[in-house]
Amino acid sequence: MLLRRATPAELGPAGDVTVAAYADFVLGPDDPYVERLRDAARRDREAELWVAVDKRVAGPATVLGTVTVCPPGSPWREVAHDGEGELRMLAVSPAAQGRGVGAALLDLVVERFRGEGAHAVVLSSLPQMAAAHRLYTRAGFIRMPERDHSPQPHVQLLAFRKDLP
């Protein structure tokens, strides 16, 4: 797989992958959050959208997964403090789950912020996302209950943090 900033042609497929990956965690196709998940172009304008693509496929790249990197100043940041990096909407295509795509994207974000001198990386996750929590724990993230938050009524998010040496 190849990890890179999303190209304009990959924004639509990246949005579709995000919607598919989050399908079990939204209230159905009419949930307003679905459009936010699908709008990869906005995330790329206001933050940075990165993708994992299958480099074995000829022609247009197949998007296997995606992550939104939220640098300082991005309106997509929710829980980061000064000196911390933040990621949002880590998503892996259901067909590519279990192949290390999520771990590779997570490593990319951690290394990116480490290279920029951040002292930690943070993220938020729904309580029901048990598979994601296992991935974060394996990558060295720990729970930070003091930063749990509720961005909308009836939505509770758990905060995680990885300190960077």
Rank of each mutant, 00 (worst) to 15 (best):
A132V: 04
H119S: 12
A61R: 06
L3V: 15
A40M: 04
G12N: 06
L135Q: 10
P32M: 10
L158K: 01
A104M: 04
G115T: 09
A132L: 07
L64D: 04
A96E: 11
L135F: 04
H154Y: 09
D30G: 15
R56N: 13
R38V: 11
R134W: 04
P165L: 05
D44A: 12
G73T: 08
V121S: 04
S93V: 02
R161P: 04
D148H: 09
V92M: 01
A95Q: 14
L126C: 02
A58S: 14
H133Y: 05
P151Q: 08
Q156I: 02
G15A: 10
G140I: 10
L49K: 01
D54F: 07
L106W: 01
G59P: 05
K162Y: 08
R88H: 13
R99K: 12
S125M: 02
G83P: 04
A52F: 01
L64A: 08
D16V: 01
G65E: 00
A96R: 06
W76I: 00
R161Y: 01
L105Q: 06
L157C: 10
G28Q: 06
L108C: 09
D163T: 14
H149T: 10
P32K: 12
R161V: 14
L106Y: 02
G65I: 03
Y22E: 01
L126R: 12
R43Y: 14
H149V: 03
A21H: 03
D82Q: 02
G73Y: 06
A95C: 00
V109T: 15
L87I: 15
E35V: 11
R134Y: 02
E146V: 08
A130G: 02
E78L: 11
V101G: 05
D39Q: 14
E116P: 06
V53H: 06
E111A: 14
P145F: 08
L157I: 02
R45P: 13
D31F: 13
M89G: 03
G28P: 15
A95T: 14
R42N: 12
L108Q: 07
P127Q: 06
Q97N: 06
V17W: 05
Y22Q: 07
L158F: 13
P32E: 09
S125A: 15
V110M: 09
D148S: 05
R43F: 15
S150R: 13
P94W: 04
L126H: 12
R45Y: 03
Q156L: 12
V101N: 01
R45E: 14
D163A: 14
A52V: 04
L126W: 05
D82Y: 00
F25K: 10
R99N: 12
V53I: 14
R43E: 07
L105M: 08
A91Q: 02
P145I: 06
L90G: 06
R134S: 11
R77N: 10
K162C: 13
F141C: 08
